[in-house]
């Protein structure tokens, strides 16, 4: 029975996850597949849904890479220029700050006339970058501190320039960290709802209306068909995304976290 003796450690967790998330979710699928009208068609005709999907897609495709890149660049600079500890603390600090606390600042920035012309999505993107670069920064910092300097030095001796070194040697070496950074950034991008809610309220401008806003409003109304349909779509999307990330991670060699 040794095989099953370890089970007891995971039992509460499984129990909780299953009962709280899995089982109700599966049961709730009935709203989607057995509802009177085809809720999938309903949802696709819902203008709000379309807009929110569009916004979310734009947001994620623009700002997640940006978060990763800027995080990497900053970590790189910190490591190579030996930037002081204060810089590290400053970059990491925003991830600890609650959204509500700095909402005052962002509200006033957003309301001030200087930014009227800027697309609301970019404001949200900027806020996202501010609050989430800390994560990618840490990931890359750790990875950079870990690295094996010998390969780089060999490359330099072989005469390759700095940029080429970075692209062809360093990045592949840090692909594990890259994957992790992308995952974490994706995770955080879905959390941007907090900032949006804190700053712009429940009904933000249509340009920054993202899928969480949509789902949130539907949840409040408790209109379960559209809600579940939207959830399913989002789920499928994330599933596909995860699949691709993991596969590309596996492709870029080195053992994965799994």
């Amino acid at each position: 029975m040794k095989k099953y003796s370890m089970m007891k450690y995971i039992l509460p967790s499984i129990f909780g996850v299953a009962f709280l998330n899995l089982v109700p979710f599966i049961i709730a699928q009935k709203y989607v597949f057995f509802s009177s009208g085809g809720s999938f068609t309903d949802i696709f005709s819902n203008m709000g849904f379309i807009i929110s999907i569009k916004n979310t897609a734009v947001f994620m495709s623009v700002f997640i890479p940006l978060a990763v890149i800027i995080g990497f660049v900053t970590a790189f600079l910190t490591e190579y220029l030996k930037l002081s500890f204060w810089v590290q603390a400053a970059v990491i600090l925003p991830i600890t700050v609650p959204a509500s606390s700095v909402s005052g600042f962002f509200r006033e920035i957003a309301a001030s006339s200087a930014l009227e012309n800027i697309n609301g999505l970019f404001i949200v993107g900027f806020i996202f970058l501010w609050s989430c670069i800390g994560y990618t920064y840490i990931i890359f910092l750790i990875s950079l501190k870990n690295r094996d300097k010998s390969i780089e030095e060999a490359a330099y001796l072989d005469g390759s320039g700095t940029l080429r070194t970075i692209f062809s040697i360093m990045l592949p070496l840090h692909s594990e960290a890259l994957v992790l950074a992308v995952i974490v950034s994706t995770y955080n991008s879905l959390k941007i709802f907090r900032m949006t809610y804190a700053i712009f309220g429940e009904y933000p401008d249509y340009r920054m209306f993202m899928i969480q806003n949509f789902l949130h409003l539907k949840l409040k109304e408790l209109s379960l068909d559209t809600l579940m349909a939207g959830a399913d779509i989002l789920l499928a999307f994330i599933f596909i995304l995860l699949f691709f990330i993991l596969r590309s991670g596996r492709k870029h060699k080195i053992k994965m976290s799994l």
């Binding site: 009962f19 709280l20 998330n21 899995l22 089982v23 109700p24 979710f25 049961i27 709730a28 995952i183 994706t186 995770y187 879905l190 959390k191 709802f193 899928i211 969480q212 789902l215 949130h216 949840l219 408790l222 379960l224 809600l227 579940m228 959830a231 989002l234 789920l235 994330i238 995860l242």
Partner: peptide, 15 residues
């Protein structure tokens, strides 16, 4: 873990 909160909230509410 990666699911947005709104999606996990739905089953919670139903439960």
């Amino acid at each position: 873990m990666l699911l947005p909160l709104q999606i996990t909230l739905i089953p919670n509410v139903l439960l």
